[in-house]
């Protein structure tokens, strides 16, 4: 059993059984993190290129550790999309990479669809590490792993995703992943940050925080980007924090065993009060630890087996 595609670009295209496989594999990978010598020889001789065209220390580090623990050679290429625009196009970069025969290219890009472009141009396995407001599949998978670990299962759980849904790739990937695994999802945030037609993704929309978090098993708070004010999407950070910030008082409306999640980095005091971020409900650091395991699982599943050329 393996994954069907050569790439991992969208949670949208995964079968529930594939998600199960990734989570099971990741769970087995976690043991490696507890060892004195955190290294297995599985990907010896394989090359993983981390192509990060949008800054992200966390995700890049997570992928880098995942690759290194599996003994792959990991090369980091970073830059910004704008510098790529000025000098070399993404397609040029892709063709240059292809000439160096990497086994896997992990791409982070500020624009939706960039991984699709790469996947069409390269034989290597492409892993989407976040493309614009489109998807961030490894984040959703590590979130699912964290929830499953804490709750023992996913099917039938209720989650609320709160904040800037419109601009969030984390929200999109999680909505797909949670729905596929039998969870119910409510999204909540200011109406200006709820994208049109979001209900067609199979979620409910709430316009009040208390309403959204009542009775749910998981509350996922999204990071609010400061630039949303300029586009007149919200009046001020102060008003956002007042209406949509999760405080201990508000948390009283939630279940006693609720999990608080955040993809990081947290704007403490904006979407999440510091005492909530550090509370016993918070699993934010478990998310980070699980990130490495999920990325190891994906590297193993995508490039651990037959070389792409020889594959069917």
């Amino acid at each position: 059993m393996g994954l069907r595609g050569k790439d991992l670009i969208e949670v949208r295209g995964l079968e529930p059984a594939e998600i199960e496989l990734i989570l099971d594999t990741a769970e087995s990978m976690k043991e490696i993190a507890s060892r004195a010598i955190k290294k297995v020889p599985t990907l010896r001789g394989k090359t993983v290129v981390n192509l990060f065209l949008e800054p992200s220390t966390r995700t890049r580090t997570s992928f880098e550790i995942a690759g290194k623990w599996l003994s792959a050679d990991v090369v980091n290429v970073s830059g910004s999309a704008s510098s790529v625009v000025k000098g070399e196009t993404l397609m040029d970069t892709a063709k240059n990479l292809e000439a160096m025969s990497p086994d896997c290219v992990v791409i982070r890009h500020a624009m939706a669809g960039a991984p699709h472009m790469l996947a069409r141009a390269l034989r290597a396995a492409i892993i989407n590490a976040g493309d614009g407001a489109h998807e961030h599949p490894t984040q959703a998978l590590l979130d699912l792993l964290t929830i499953r670990e804490k709750k023992g299962h996913l099917d039938g759980l209720k989650a609320a995703i709160v904040g800037d849904i419109a601009h969030s790739r984390v929200a999109r990937s999680n909505i797909y992943g949670m729905r596929k695994m039998g969870m119910t999802v409510t999204v909540a945030g200011p109406p200006t940050l709820i994208p049109p037609g979001v209900e067609e993704l199979g979620v409910k929309v709430a316009h009040r925080l208390e309403e959204a978090i009542r009775d749910v098993d998981v509350v996922m708070m999204l990071r609010l980007q400061q630039e949303r004010m300029q586009a007149a999407l919200i009046p001020s950070l102060r008003e956002y924090a007042r209406l949509w910030g999760l405080t201990l008082d508000r948390l009283a409306a939630a279940r006693e065993d609720v999990l608080i999640m955040h993809p990081g980095p947290v704007n403490r005091g904006v979407e999440l009060a510091p005492e909530v971020a550090d509370s016993r409900y918070s699993v934010i650091l478990d998310q980070v630890a699980n990130g490495v395991a999920v990325r190891m699982a994906l590297l193993y599943l995508l490039i651990g087996g037959k070389p792409a050329e020889a594959g069917a």
């Binding site: 059993m1 393996g2 496989l21 099971d24 594999t25 769970e27 087995s28 990978m29 043991e31 599985t42 699982a297 193993y300 599943l301 651990g304 087996g305 037959k306 070389p307 020889a310």
Partner: peptide, 13 residues
């Protein structure tokens, strides 16, 4: 690993 038709499922150690 590179020769197997089916990728083995990883289980916990």
């Amino acid at each position: 690993l590179g020769d197997l038709a089916e990728q083995p499922v990883l289980r916990e150690t």
